[in-house]
Amino acid sequence: MTARSLATGASSGERAASPSVWSRIWQNDAPGYLFLLPWFIGFLGLTIGPILTSLYLSFTHFDLLTAPRWAGADNYVRMFTNDAKFFASMRVTVFFVIFSVPLKLAFALAVALLLNRGMRGLPLYRALFYLPSLLGASVAIAILWRQIFAGDGLVNQVLALFGIQGPSWISNPNTSLWTLIFLSIWQFGSPMIIFLAGLRQIPQDMYEAASLDGAGRWRQFWKITLPLLTPVVFFNAIIQTIEAFKSFTPAFIISGGTGNPINSTLFYTLYLYQEAFGYFRMGYASALAWVLLAIVGLFTAFSFLTSKYWVHYDD
């Protein structure tokens, strides 16, 4: 009986119509919805419901203790006209995204290209380069990073061997954000693995043909490898950018939750956390979340729209 509920390709009118509409619905649709039930509850209760609620809250003042008070567009107006910290956090986040993502991807691609040339020991190298990616999200690594770039940390000890007196990278507002960018680049392993998988898809005979036509390695890279790899570049860029926008833990640990020195590591997510769980301005924090959603959404839409001009798809 339930045979028809499985996607066996049998069209629904094949057998005699069931006696009642309800029993037909039960046979055809019920198993699917029953299997989906846990996800469905989560989707309504933890995703759709909260999204709508958060949109509503962004137009209110809400401190968790008293009921939300309608505020109209106050939160948004304040954000864009009278909140230096909002702009500071935006600047920090955009700076972080603009520098960490391309550098990370460039590094990942360079190493993948090197490894792809039939290097012996590829599995070992791949594993070693992947390890930081796997461990990197941990608080332990953020703690390690804080020590490495401290005034008396590992980096300065190494520099001292060469007679260079390094600054305290963490507490200097000019360099503090770069330590976080560095931490992100250090974790280039997983985009590298994705690049490696992409490189393996490129047919080898294209290179042989190009080689016979006298194209050197450099030309082969620009004319064959890179164009054929653009879908993977695109994918990696989207994923890494969204991840970079959401990054929270390293900045929190390294700055002790403050985003200092002088807001130089105040990631947008960190500012949102401070507003929500430090000052309990839940309405304002919801508005911040919606602005973040708008930015990530616009970025994604923009990427997909422009992708047809530079991403090469096989026809």
Binding site: W39, S54, T269
Partner: peptide, 19 residues
């Protein structure tokens, strides 16, 4: 379901906390 993949968790964070 695919749309929720792209959603930054901050958007649902506060209502979930209230819940």
């Amino acid at each position: 379901m695919l749309m929720t993949l792209m959603l930054p968790y901050q958007v649902t964070l506060i209502p979930q906390y209230v819940l």
